[in-house]
Amino acid sequence: MTKKILIISSDNTGHGHKSITESLCEKIGMDHDINVHVVDGFSLGGHSLLNIGKTYGPITRRSENLWEKVFNYSAENPELIDKFIEMLIRKNFLKLLDEEKPDLILSVHPNFNGSILNILEKEFIKIPFLTLIADLVNISPLWADKRADVIICPTIEARDKCIEYGVPAEKIKVVGFPVRSRFFRNSTNKKVNYRVGTPLNFLIMSGGEGVGNMKSIAEILFDQFDCSVKIVAGRNAKLKAELEQSLKRKYGNKVDIYGFTKDIQDLMFQADIAFTRGSPNVMFEAFASNTPIMITGALPGQEQDNPTFAEKLNLGVICKDPSQIEAKINQLLENDAEKLNHIIHCQRKFINSRAAEEIIQFMLEVENRFEWKLQLA
């Protein structure tokens, strides 16, 4: 019997929620016994909520301090946020349930956990509800609603935070962070064969929204190393134009500047080192592609401890001060790039290439258990 899964995601609050959804859908597409329907949770609240979701990009690009206040307010007032969103999405969500009749609901965005659970509870609707956390260490209480049937965590740190918030340990499943299959190399034997004087390939990126001091980093790399630099400005068209005007004129074909690209994995495969902020999705895609990362910063709130997480596990290095870039890279390149290759080795051991498949299989097991309980009732 075909099962139908409803996934509540987001198209406009960064690219992480969307890419997680895509990683699951590509595996679900291989199973003819599963149908999936994906909806942008913000669209369920009409223009007002959709416009709120669309402010994520401008706020995170222009004012990290404002974003920190937004994150902290929502973390301190989860019940208020849940009730507000519940009020906005209630009518359209119930209509969606009536149209799709899902066997299971999976939320991959924190704003739609408590709000949807409120609606299901008040309407006496019994459908398995699972949450898939898209953050690593700094977990908002919005993720940790103990009424969920299961909360799927990407890290031990996320699990521990959910337990701290009162979620029973038996309701938590640690699987890993699902990454789209195209980010995994065909060969598992990547090694940086560096010798003094060898040109280096650098990649500078900053998540889908394109934030950070990309120009300064590129200039330091060109001044200190024989290299080529590729820069991904994401959806930030203004930044892309500024970088093209300032860098292309000076460095010519040694620099390439991209907007939002669906082929980011190819750029990662070509890079010896990638510079990025502590975005969970970007970090794990780099781990999957065995691309050593230098983390230059993180959004306050949900990303703030991600750089330390990566460095502690030797999956990358932190370099928030541009003046330290040269020294950090030279350390990685010492002794025939010994530290750089050790990072690649640790990434390969750490990443769970089957995370998406395991999450899907686990969801089906939860649905089957739920169905069995209903038959016994």
Rank of each mutant, 00 (worst) to 15 (best):
T2L: 07
K3H: 07
K4F: 02
I5T: 02
L6Q: 03
I8K: 06
S9F: 08
S10P: 07
N12H: 12
H17E: 12
I20D: 07
T21D: 04
K27H: 06
M30P: 02
I34M: 09
H37I: 13
V38I: 15
V39K: 05
D40I: 04
I52F: 13
Y56P: 09
P58L: 07
I59Y: 10
R62L: 03
N65L: 06
I89R: 00
E100I: 14
P102T: 00
P102D: 09
D103N: 13
D103E: 06
L106M: 03
S107K: 13
S107W: 14
V108W: 13
N118S: 12
I125F: 11
A134H: 02
L142M: 15
W143F: 04
R147L: 06
A148P: 00
D149V: 00
V150H: 09
V150F: 12
T155E: 06
E157A: 13
D160M: 04
P168M: 05
I172A: 10
V175K: 14
G176Q: 11
F177P: 01
P178C: 09
F184K: 03
N186V: 05
Y194I: 01
G197Q: 02
T198F: 00
L200A: 01
L203C: 04
D223Y: 15
D223F: 14
F225N: 07
S228C: 12
K230D: 14
A237K: 15
L247M: 12
R249P: 01
G252V: 04
G252F: 10
I264F: 13
I264H: 10
Q265K: 13
I273S: 04
F275T: 13
T276W: 13
R277T: 11
P280V: 01
N281L: 06
V282F: 00
M283G: 10
T296G: 07
G297R: 08
P307K: 12
C319E: 14
C319I: 06
D321Q: 03
A327W: 05
I329Y: 13
I329H: 11
L332M: 12
I344L: 10
A356W: 11
I360S: 03
V366M: 02
L374M: 04
Q375H: 04
Q375F: 03
L376N: 05
A377Q: 11
